Amino acid sequence: MRDPGPPRQLTFDLPLDPRYGREDFLVGPANEAAYGLIEAWPDWPETVFLLTGPPGSGKSHLASIWATRAHAWTIPAAEVSAANVTHLASNGALVIEDIDRAASRDEAALFHLLNLARERRHPVMITSAVGVDSLGLAVADLRSRLRLALGATILPPDEALLRAVIVKLFVDRQLVVDLSVVEAVALRIDRSLGRARAVVTELDRDALGRGRRITKPLALAVLARLGMTDPAGDDDAE
């Protein structure tokens, strides 16, 4: 009779609170320009700062660091409306997150808000996964204003930053893994911090469900299931 192996455990997708402190942000060539502008505040030459980068690249982390320094409010772009523009513009510094995700965004309200903030010298930080020209903005004045904004783009991470972030993601989940696990993940995923986060989440869920610690063989099995194999073709080598 086939051994069913250790019993699988129930897993619960409990929310993991990410640590968004300044000391938790890992700086590398991919993000040092953006981080430098955050550090340069309040000596910005423009009122509006547009931060772009792919999902999971650290935009929200940088926005949180700046919001703490500037005592800024934070609001999703989708929630900016004609009804709250005056209120938002009257309360000092502001972070507007994910302007690219706001399919029903009120572009006229956003433009009005940026105008009011500029008049009152209140800094505004806007995050987006894509550049201005890819936002599909219908209001030309808003498009022009964002093109004139102070800007920085977070680039794909280099190998050193990717490995450091993978380690941090395990540490954030209070998971102790061998460096061979980190290497296995780093070698098989594309250079994306968002992908690294997704893979570590899947490894954590799988290990918890199996009642096992995360080892390299387990990591290789999960990565293979996700369609991520070693480019050298030696996944079976130990």
Rank of each mutant, 00 (worst) to 15 (best):
Thr215Gln: 08
Ile75Leu: 12
Asp17Gly: 00
Asp98Met: 12
Thr201Ala: 11
Asp178Leu: 10
Glu97Tyr: 00
Tyr35Asn: 10
Asp190Cys: 00
Val199Asp: 02
Arg19Cys: 01
Val199Ala: 06
Ala221Asp: 15
Gly21Tyr: 06
Pro156Val: 05
Ala149Ile: 05
Gly58Ile: 02
Leu155Asn: 08
Pro4Cys: 07
Met228Gln: 07
Leu142Asp: 12
Ile214Glu: 00
Asp172Leu: 14
Ala109Cys: 09
Val222Gly: 01
Asp230His: 12
Glu183Arg: 13
Asp106Met: 03
Tyr20Pro: 01
Arg225Ala: 13
Arg69Thr: 12
Leu142His: 01
Leu137Val: 11
Thr153Arg: 03
Arg147Gly: 02
Val222Ile: 14
Thr47His: 08
Ile214Asn: 05
Asp106Ala: 00
Pro29Ala: 06
Asp133Val: 10
Glu119Val: 05
Thr74Glu: 04
Glu202His: 09
Lys216Cys: 10
Asn31Cys: 00
Ala30Ile: 09
Arg105His: 07
Ala78Gly: 11
His71Arg: 15
Thr201Trp: 01
Leu37Ser: 09
Arg121Val: 08
Leu62Tyr: 02
Asp235Tyr: 06
Phe111Asn: 12
Pro157Met: 05
Lys216Ser: 04
Ser128Met: 04
Gly21His: 07
Asn84Arg: 13
Ala108Phe: 11
Asp235Val: 01
Gly56Gln: 12
Ala70His: 02
Gly227Glu: 10
Glu183Pro: 00
Leu161Ser: 07
Phe25Ser: 03
Gly92Cys: 10
Ser81Arg: 15
Trp73Gln: 15
Arg2Leu: 13
Trp41Ile: 06
Glu159Pro: 10
Arg205Pro: 09
Ala149Gln: 09
Thr215Leu: 13
Pro15Leu: 07
Ala63Tyr: 14
Leu10Asp: 09
Tyr20Asp: 05
Leu175Pro: 02
Asp43Cys: 03
Leu14Cys: 05
Asp235Phe: 03
Ala152Trp: 13
Gly233Leu: 07
Leu135Asn: 08
Thr153Glu: 08
Ser81Val: 07
Pro231Arg: 14
Leu137Gln: 12
Ala117Tyr: 00
Ala83Thr: 14
Ala72Val: 06
Leu116Phe: 04
Ala117Lys: 07
Leu169Met: 10
Gly5Tyr: 11
Ser134Met: 09
Asp17Tyr: 00
Asp230Ile: 04
Arg225Glu: 15
Asp190Ala: 05
Val130Gln: 09
Asp230Asn: 14
Gly28Met: 06
Arg212Lys: 15
Gly53Met: 01
Leu88Lys: 04
Pro123Glu: 13
Val130Thr: 14
Ala108Asp: 01
Ile96Met: 06
Gly227Pro: 12
His112Asn: 10
Leu37Tyr: 13
Ala103His: 13
His61Ala: 06
Gly194Ile: 02
Ala164Leu: 08
Pro6Leu: 15
Arg120Val: 02
Asn91Ser: 14
Ala237Glu: 15
Ala160Tyr: 02
Val27Tyr: 03
His71Trp: 11
Tyr20Met: 08
Lys168Met: 04
Arg225His: 13
Trp44Lys: 11
Ala140Ser: 15
Glu238Thr: 06
Gly58Tyr: 00
Ala78Ser: 15
Leu148Phe: 10
Arg120Gly: 09
Gly56Ile: 03
Pro29Phe: 01
